[in-house]
Nucleic acid binder design. Structure first.
Length: 536
RNA sequence: GAGCCCAUAGCUCAGCGGUAGAGCAUCUGACUUUUAAUCAGAGGGCCGAUGGUUCGACCCCAUCUGGGCUCACCA
C-alpha cells in the first residue's frame, strides 16, 4: 500500500525516468554550490506565464513537468524545494485580445501594464489581477503546489532592485549581448529598460538618452518628445522581455526552468543577462511543441489541435498527465485520437505498477508514480476505455444505467460506480463521446411495410415480457418475430432494427440490449420509431 | 542561415547494450439464433544510409540522406 515508504534514496538515484535525470542534474548543481562554500537553503523551480491569454494545455504541461522534476528531486534530496508560478502581469498590453468583453476600453488602455488596466470582466482590481486569479484557479484545480508571484508586485516590492541596479551599472555589457540579436532599426532605440511613463502610465519602448548609475536613474525620450528621468528600481521601469527573464533568474535565484522550443534560441541570452546581473543561470530543460494531426504547430489563432477543456471532456486528467509525461522532447501530435490511447495506457501503467511481480525500481520508472507523486491510487479498471467506447456506440447506451449494465456484463470481475469511481468517470467520457461524435452521425430510416408490421408485433411481445432481464429469452422473442414475418435472410430483420431504432447499421445483440434497456422501454422506443419521431 | 526533433510491420507508435514489440489494419479459427463485439492464432520489418566503439548495437559516437518544427520583428 504505502509504496512511498519502501522507495530508498539509492533506488531513486539510479532511476532512469527523465524527471530523475533532471533531478540529478539539479543535485549536481547544488553540490557544486555547496563546494563553492555558498549557502544552500533551498532549490527554486520557476514556471512563467503570460497573463494576456488564458492558461491552456501548454501551461498545464509546463507546470506538471516541472512538478515531476521537483518531486523526483525531493526523493533524492532533503533540501527544501519551492516552485514559483511567475505571472508577467507588468507587461504592457500590446493588442486587444479576441473574445474579451469591453474591447474599446482595452483599446483605450493599450500599452499600460496589465495590472494598471481595469478588469474587463469587472470582478477584480485589474485585468492582470483577473487573469492571475484565473491562473491560480487553474493551477489549484489540478492540485499543483506553487508560490504565486506577480511581476508587478515583485518589481514594486524592491526585490528586483539590486539586480536592476547591477544591470544599469553594466549597461554596456547588456547592450553588447542584446544588440546583435536585433534588427538595425531597433538597435537605434533599444534599451533593456522600459520606463513606465509617469504621464501616460504606459510601458514605453523609449530611447534612453542618459544613465546615472549613482542615482539609479535613466533619462528617456517621452512620447511627446520631452525628456523624463525615472529610477530603474521600485517598479518605475520594467525590463524588456529577454533581459527580464535573465534578471529574474538572478534576483530570485532560480535553479530550474523549463521552456518550449520557441525559446530555445533566446535561452543563451537569458543566461548571459543572468550572469551580468550577478546570478548563476538555472538548469534548463527544453521541451518540444505539440503538433496537430497534420503535423502542423498548434496555435490558438489557427484553432487547430485540441484545448485542455477538449481533453478533459473526453479523457481523464491522469491520461493528459501521462501524455505530458511521455517524451517531452519529441514533437508529438496532440489531437483528438490520442486521448483514448492515453487513457488506456494510463490504465495499463496503473496495472503494471500494482502487479505483484513489479519491483520498486520498476515502479520508479512508471509514469503513474510520477503523475501521482508517489501516492498511486489502488483503483482497478477491469474494462478498457477502448472497450467502453465500442460499447457505448454499439449498444446505443446513452444513459449511465444502461451503460453500466453493459459494463457489468463485460467486466471479468465485479464492478460498480461506487467501488470504481475512476471507471465511472470513464463511462461519463464515453457517454459524452457518444453524444458528440456518434449521435450526430446517426441516420434513422423509416421502416417498410413488412418491417412496420414486424416491429409492431415485437413491441407487443416485449410488453408482455414486462421486466424480463434474461437476454437469451428476449433474443428468442426477437428471433421468433423475425421468422414469423418471413425475413429472408434473417439478418435483414436485425439490420432493420438497428437502422430504424438506433440509426446505425450495426448494433448490440438485440436481446441483450432490450433486456438491459428494459423490455417496456424498448417497446416504447419501437412505438416512437413507428410514429416517425426518430426521423426529424 | 542557426538550432532542435523525428526516421522501427500497411498505419500510429513503444523499445534506448544481450536472439525485433504493441494497438489498429489484414488473414484464419472459435463463439454467436444477423452484424458487431469477444476470444485464440497467423502473416508481415537487412529497426533511413555509411563508418566507428563493443564479445555483442534498433539502442552509444561520427558523417550523410530524407521529413518536420522553432528562431531569425514583438512579447
Amino acid at each position: 500500500m504505502n509504496q512511498l515508504a519502501k522507495i530508498t534514496r539509492e533506488q531513486a538515484l539510479a532511476a532512469k525516468a527523465w524527471p530523475f535525470e533532471e533531478a540529478r542534474r539539479l543535485l549536481a548543481r547544488i553540490e557544486a554550490r555547496k563546494k563553492a562554500g555558498k549557502p544552500v537553503d533551498g532549490v527554486l523551480f520557476e514556471t512563467g506565464y503570460g497573463p494576456s491569454g488564458l492558461p491552456h494545455i501548454g501551461t498545464f504541461g509546463e507546470v506538471a513537468r516541472t512538478s515531476w522534476v521537483r518531486h523526483a528531486f525531493e526523493t533524492i534530496s532533503d533540501i527544501p524545494t519551492h516552485l514559483i508560478a511567475f505571472s508577467d502581469d507588468m507587461d504592457g498590453l500590446r493588442k486587444v485580445p479576441d473574445n474579451l468583453p469591453q474591447p474599446e476600453m482595452l483599446a483605450a488602455n493599450l500599452g499600460k501594464p496589465l495590472t494598471a488596466i481595469p478588469d474587463p470582466f469587472g470582478t477584480h482590481e485589474s485585468f492582470g489581477h483577473h487573469m492571475n486569479a484565473r491562473l491560480r484557479a487553474f493551477l489549484d484545480r489540478f492540485g499543483f503546489r506553487y508560490d504565486f508571484y506577480s511581476s508587478t508586485a515583485t518589481y514594486k516590492s524592491g526585490r528586483f532592485d539590486e539586480a536592476l541596479l547591477r544591470i544599469l551599472a553594466r549597461y554596456d555589457e547588456v547592450m553588447k549581448v542584446m544588440l546583435p540579436t536585433l534588427g538595425e532599426e531597433r538597435q537605434q532605440t533599444y534599451s533593456p529598460f522600459l520606463p513606465v511613463s509617469p504621464k501616460s502610465g504606459k510601458v514605453l519602448l523609449a530611447k534612453v538618452v542618459e544613465r546615472d548609475v549613482a542615482k539609479g536613474t535613466i533619462t528617456y525620450v517621452e512620447e511627446d518628445g520631452s525628456h523624463q528621468t525615472v529610477p530603474v528600481t521600485g517598479g518605475h521601469c520594467k525590463l524588456q522581455w529577454k533581459p527580464d527573464m535573465g534578471m529574474r533568474w538572478a534576483a530570485l535565484g532560480v535553479d530550474y526552468e523549463m521552456y518550449g522550443k520557441d525559446h530555445l534560441s533566446q535561452a543563451p541570452l537569458y543566461s548571459a543577462i543572468c550572469k551580468i546581473a550577478g546570478g548563476n543561470p538555472p538548469e534548463q530543460y527544453m521541451y518540444e511543441m505539440f503538433l496537430d494531426d497534420q503535423g502542423q504547430k498548434i496555435s490558438k489563432s489557427k484553432g487547430n489541435g485540441i484545448s485542455l477543456d477538449d481533453w478533459l471532456a473526453y479523457g481523464s486528467q491522469e491520461s493528459l498527465a501521462l501524455f505530458m509525461f511521455q517524451k517531452p522532447r519529441t514533437a508529438k501530435k496532440l489531437y483528438f485520437d490520442v486521448i483514448p490511447k492515453a487513457v488506456d495506457e494510463y490504465i495499463a501503467f496503473l496495472e503494471s505498477y500494482h502487479a505483484a511481480e513489479t519491483t520498486d525500481e520498476q515502479r520508479l520508472e512508471n509514469p503513474v508514480w510520477h503523475i501521482h507523486a508517489g501516492q498511486v491510487p489502488q483503483e482497478r479498471y477491469p474494462v478498457s476505455f477502448a472497450l467502453l467506447l465500442n460499447l457505448v456506440s454499439a449498444s446505443n447506451a446513452h444513459n449511465r444505467d444502461v451503460l453500466w449494465g453493459f459494463i457489468r456484463a463485460y467486466s471479468p470481475e465485479a464492478v460498480s460506480p461506487q467501488s470504481n469511481p475512476g471507471l465511472d468517470k470513464l463511462a461519463d467520457f464515453a457517454l459524452r463521446y457518444y453524444e458528440d461524435f456518434v449521435r450526430p452521425s446517426k441516420v434513422y430510416r423509416a421502416p417498410n411495410e413488412q418491417e412496420r408490421a414486424a416491429l409492431a408485433d415485437l413491441a407487443a411481445r416485449l410488453e408482455q415480457l414486462g421486466d424480463e432481464r434474461d437476454g437469451k429469452i428476449v433474443q428468442d422473442v426477437v428471433y421468433d418475430v423475425g421468422k414469423a414475418h418471413n425475413f429472408e435472410p434473417l439478418r435483414a430483420w436485425f439490420g432493420a432494427l438497428y437502422e430504424v431504432l438506433l440509426g446505425q447499421s450495426q448494433g448490440p445483440r438485440f436481446g441483450s440490449f432490450a433486456a438491459l434497456f428494459g423490455c417496456a422501454q424498448t417497446a416504447a422506443m419501437i412505438k416512437a420509431a413507428l410514429n416517425g419521431e426518430f426521423l426529424k
